[in-house]
Design a protein around this nucleic acid. Structure first.
Lengths: 202, 202
DNA sequence: GTCTATAGCCTGATAGAC
DNA sequence: GTCTATCAGGCTATAGAC
């Protein structure tokens, strides 16, 4: 009696290698700009073999996005309504900036997708992302009503954190071209922390 | 005796239509994702006719970028060393935000290019853009030394203005998905002005 | 499971009639 | 100047041997 085998070690390793290679290529060239040849070469597989593990180019991209979305939003989920407001927000900012430093490809993958109109994740943005942001915005509003942080537009506050931190991943080449030898991640954390302390001090 | 004719009215109109169509298509899909078919259709020309006006896809893209770069940096150039520091900076922020509202395609054209490593304008970033930013950073440093605005990292201050304002063009779909019916440009200006007043007040 | 070979489509660009 | 027709090359995806 045959039964469905769990993934072999080789299969697990190949799937992981493909997603790793795909992250490299999709984040650097966008969906349309990426080719299966590039991904296969980066994963050390032949192109047909790559398509043995994933049925299509779209499937690889979808698997990547789906797998990363949770990771991407974890720092915002971690914002604790019971914590000390300013410290919670500064911790969120710090985590997001660390993600720009440590996971720039992931940031650029989403940037590519969203700049081009988010054709593949628009539904997720309008449902899951909106729900999460609305929920956290209510937390922020509560803190503001209690006088624990300054009163500002909660959604724009969250947008500002996204834009200020992700800028250092998405526009990395521009930042480095302008800064020259200075490492942006040496000086950015202090600047951004100062910004939010001044903005949010009640 | 024949002489070189200046561009006819039709030629001027067609070149303009091509660049307009190309801005639409390149900003929405990136360089690689855009096709000459799409551009030709949007410009109401046949593909060969399109290539009568521009020798190649690259040439269209280059013409677009070159023509827009000046417009794009004008607001920063307008930052007046002799002006009132906080007002000059707020005026810059305001202009940049207006450009995100009124010229979102231009913003996304540059965003696509830079997120993917700026393969076509890296040299310009390292020379012209860096020079301009360094020059204006010196103006900011002077204002800080004179105690006219708060002391922060001048380059990161400029990056923050770029990221906060361009976010509303480049990530427009995400912003609107999260905000729902509310128009981001109704509430963003006040939020961002508050942010910079608090950050920069000496 | 992995390969070679290739189908079939779309792309950027050109030729040549009008 | 603008068109129809078309080419060569690159693309995703599949067939079939091993």
């Amino acid at each position: 009696m045959t039964r469905t085998r769990p993934e072999t070690r080789i299969q697990a390793r190949n799937r992981a290698a493909i997603l790793e290679a795909a992250l490299d290529v999709f984040s650097a060239h966008g969906f349309r700009g990426a080719t299966l040849d590039q991904i296969a070469a980066a994963a050390n597989l032949s192109k047909p073999n790559l398509l043995y593990y994933f049925p299509s180019k779209d499937a690889i991209h979808d698997a990547l996005l789906a797998g990363l979305l949770d990771t991407w939003l974890d720092p915002l989920r971690a914002l604790d309504p019971e914590g000390e407001p300013l410290e919670e927000l500064l911790a969120y900012v710090r985590r997001k900036l660390e993600m720009s430093r440590d996971l720039p490809r992931e940031s650029r993958l989403f940037a590519n997708e969203i700049v081009q109109g988010a054709p593949r994740i628009h539904a997720t943005l309008s449902s899951d992302l909106k729900s999460l942001v609305d929920e956290k915005a209510r937390v922020l509003t509560g803190w503001m009503a209690a006088g624990r942080i300054a009163r500002v537009h909660p959604h724009h506050l969250i947008f500002s954190i996204w834009s200020l931190t992700q800028h250092y991943a998405d526009f990395d080449v521009q930042v480095r071209a302008v800064l020259g030898d200075e490492d942006p991640f040496d000086s950015a954390p202090a600047f951004i922390e100062t910004l939010y302390r001044k903005l949010l001090s009640p």
